[in-house]
Write a protein that binds this DNA or RNA. Structure first.
Length: 440
DNA sequence: CGTCCACGTCTAC
DNA sequence: TAGACCTGGACGG
């Protein structure tokens, strides 16, 4: 889940879980992970987190016992605070567990000084994540779209001559030099809100914004604590949505959505476009799937189209009937030269007429298979067998659909159980989103 | 069992 | 602009 909102939620999680706790000893790294060791060791230290775009910094600060300076300065005791910067890759997140419950892919671990000690772990299944001790916010990453909005906006609008804006808007949105925090699902959701074709040149889209906003005020934060209908906001532009849309996800988190707890279903229920049945999708020039509705725009990668809308129905909690025969749906969408100007473009989904011409171009995959496998050693003797991918039948509450979601979210705003439950979220795909435009 | 796909960078022809 | 880097879930045969 790691896009800007998840990174921020991760920092909130760390601060909440570690508040008042004292950590001790060395920071442990798993053997398999190739990231550098974190040379920090201290009898007593505290942990604080902060985020910026798609990075999180953990600050480890030696804790001095007030009153008498009882703390003996050990051999290699760290005396000064250390910042460790994290990037989450495709699967990183923080988790706080008991010592006996350290997850399989916990690659960096911080231990509390409690009796049965507990552990803050950086978990990262795919190991694309990275960290750097004594690190700083990565140079070349722009201001955070969520919490440095003014400078983010300035950074984009004052650099439109950069060739980064020669690309299709959907690709430029992933450029962290200008859109620090935006990732694959956010770009789809943002463009969808304004119905901007993903393959329109970025500069074209942004130049318009610059003009329109010359004298306008920014969008007011919707600070709706009671869901008022106030919302008297002028039409948001693309840059303001790069700010507000991620903040909507942060809000989901404040109301219960916890990336680390696999409550991905809440996020999925929020998504209006990304991976949603009925939407179109194509591979961009970098091989990343862009989801959108309607016209793809003129700069579509030639040759390869790509489509494939598949949706899985939740397996568990079924209605026993086996009529859910329709499992996967794959439809081809022929991109018929959108260069036709506006001609017709009926939106409402292409009719998948003839198949795409030739184009058997093998799409770039995630890589080849290299037969090697160090396999994460289970640091520490792990007893627990697998949790079985079985998902407890659930008491039907997990419907999550339409406004029911609103209730679920509101309802579970209370505690956040420190124990990490082992139940995995069931994969699920909305069968039909029939509820659009329920804006707040 | 094999193929495809995944919320992201990195760096090397 | 291709790979590389990884694990694992869904799906197809």
């Amino acid at each position: 889940m790691p896009e800007g909102p998840e990174l921020h939620l991760a920092s909130l999680f760390v601060n909440r879980m570690c508040e008042g706790l004292v950590f001790t000893g060395a920071v442990e790294k798993s053997e398999v992970n190739k990231n550098p060791e974190v040379p920090f060791c201290c009898d007593a230290y505290v942990i604080k987190a902060q985020s910026r775009g798609k990075e999180v910094i953990l600050t480890l600060t030696p804790f001095k016992n007030d009153g008498d300076s009882k703390r003996k300065v050990g051999k290699h005791q760290s005396q000064h605070p250390m910042d460790v910067v994290f990037r989450f890759g495709m699967s990183g997140f923080f988790r706080f567990t008991s010592d006996d419950d350290i997850p399989k892919h916990a690659h960096l671990r911080f231990y509390t000084n409690e009796s049965p000690r507990r552990v803050l772990s950086f978990e990262d299944t795919r190991r694309f994540g990275s960290w750097q001790a004594n690190g700083t916010w990565q140079k070349d990453r722009g201001p955070c779209v969520m919490f440095e909005y003014e400078s983010f906006r300035e950074n984009v609008l004052s650099n439109l001559s950069d060739k980064a804006f020669d690309k299709p808007i959907c690709e430029t949105l992933l450029n962290q030099k200008y859109f620090n925090g935006i990732g694959n699902y956010l770009r789809a959701e943002i463009l969808f809100r304004l119905q901007i074709p993903p393959f329109v040149k970025a500069r074209t889209v942004l130049e318009g914004i610059e003009l329109k906003n010359e004298n306008k005020k920014e969008i007011k934060k919707t600070t709706d604590t009671a869901g008022k209908k106030g919302v008297t906001v002028e039409t948001p532009d693309l840059l303001s949505l790069c700010h507000t849309v991620p903040l909507e996800v942060v809000k989901l988190g404040e109301n219960g959505y916890t990336p680390a707890k696999a409550e991905y279903s809440v996020l999925q229920a929020w998504m209006q476009c990304y991976s949603v049945d009925g939407m179109n999708s194509l591979s961009d020039h970098n091989g990343r799937t862009i989801w959108f509705k309607g016209d793809p725009g003129p700069m579509v990668p030639k040759g390869a189209k790509s489509r494939k809308i598949k949706w899985k129905i939740q397996k568990d909690h079924d209605y026993t009937d086996s009529k859910k025969a329709k499992k996967t749906h794959t439809e081809s969408i022929a991109i018929e030269k959108p260069a036709k100007k506006k001609d017709n473009i009926k939106v409402k989904k292409e009719s998948a007429t003839s198949k795409a011409q030739g184009g058997s171009k093998r799409q770039k995959k995630d890589t080849k298979r290299v037969k090697t496998e160090p396999a994460d050693e289970n640091t520490k003797s792990k007893k627990q067998g697998k949790r079985s991918s079985k998902v407890p039948p659930r008491t039907g509450t997990n419907k999550i659909k339409g406004q029911h979601v609103e209730e679920v979210i509101k309802t579970k705003r209370n505690s956040v159980t420190s124990k990490e439950s082992a139940t995995k979220a069931k994969p699920q795909r909305r069968s039909s989103g029939t509820r659009r435009g329920r804006s707040r």
